[in-house]
């Protein structure tokens, strides 16, 4: 009887201690009086930024096209400028559309996954790190050009996430993710099919049913880079 009493006493004390500590360490989220209004306001704010972003990106592509045309006209009038050098530089830094034999890679969340409100660690979602790993392989395999969902990716393009939102060049992109690449398909395929190089993606594909498919294409088109190019801290070393 006394033993039973002690055990009950012990269990009660233990549970009390756990609950007490949990309570002390719980951070109470600060919420507004009208949570639905807040969600709506957040969505509207994000939408206005994203609308402006797509307008600016299209404007940049259009201006680069106009500039290209103006340079072509100038090329006929003068021989003092090395336009071949300019064209080669544009190609090197991603300011030329590239087409040719390549691959299309499809990545998508598990069919049962819900991205909105999910934890970043949710293994049924494609994460920014998965995309980074694929792009790293493509760059290492000397791909001529890469884009994701129609957005050109260059060496300086950050691929990040804020929660479950994925940002490429700091622009939002949503699943499904379509990665297009032009290059030597045999070399690229060999790397992409190496389970050791993409262990996280292959594991998620087998356990969580995320979609990861690769298709060989005779012709893939990768658009020009539509972001900003910063050089304000770069100075040429005089040779």
């Amino acid at each position: 009887m006394q033993k039973q009493f002690f055990l009950t006493f012990l269990a009660t004390g233990l549970i009390f201690g756990v609950l007490f500590t949990w309570q002390l360490r719980t951070k109470i989220p600060i919420v507004g009086n009208f949570p639905s209004d807040e969600v709506e306001a957040k969505q509207e704010l994000l939408k206005s930024f994203l609308d402006e972003q797509s307008y600016l990106q299209s404007r940049i592509v259009s201006l680069r096209g106009d500039l290209e045309e103006a340079q072509r006209n100038l090329e006929y009038q003068t021989e003092t400028i090395n336009f071949e050098k300019l064209d080669a530089l544009k190609k090197e830094i991603g300011l030329t559309e590239i087409s040719g034999e390549g691959l299309e890679i499809f990545l998508d969340d598990s069919p049962l996954a819900i991205r909105e409100g999910a934890e970043v660690s949710d293994q049924s979602l494609v994460q920014a790190s998965d995309i980074r790993d694929i792009l790293n392989i493509l760059f290492a395999a000397d791909a001529d050009a890469i884009s994701i969902n129609g957005q050109r990716v260059i060496a300086t393009s950050p691929i990040t996430s804020v929660g479950t939102t994925i940002l490429i060049n700091n622009s939002h992109i949503a699943p499904p993710f379509n990665i297009s690449t032009v290059g030597d398909t045999d070399i690229i395929l060999q790397r992409l099919l190496n389970v050791n190089l993409l262990s996280s993606i292959y594991e998620k594909r087998s356990k969580q049913n995320i979609k990861f498919e690769i298709f060989k294409k005779n012709r893939v088109i990768v658009p020009i880079y539509n972001g900003d190019l910063k050089v304000s801290h770069l100075n040429p070393v005089k040779q």
Binding site: K42, F49, I60, V120, S129, T160, V162, G163, N170, D228
Partner: peptide
């Protein structure tokens, strides 16, 4: 390897990105 959700950070990134794009344009 990825960062937890933060709405303020998300808005800050978009704001800065749009500013850079405006300057580029």
């Amino acid at each position: 390897r990825d960062v937890k959700s933060n709405i303020f950070q998300e808005i800050k990134i978009l704001k800065e990105k749009n500013e850079s794009l405006r300057n580029e344009a």
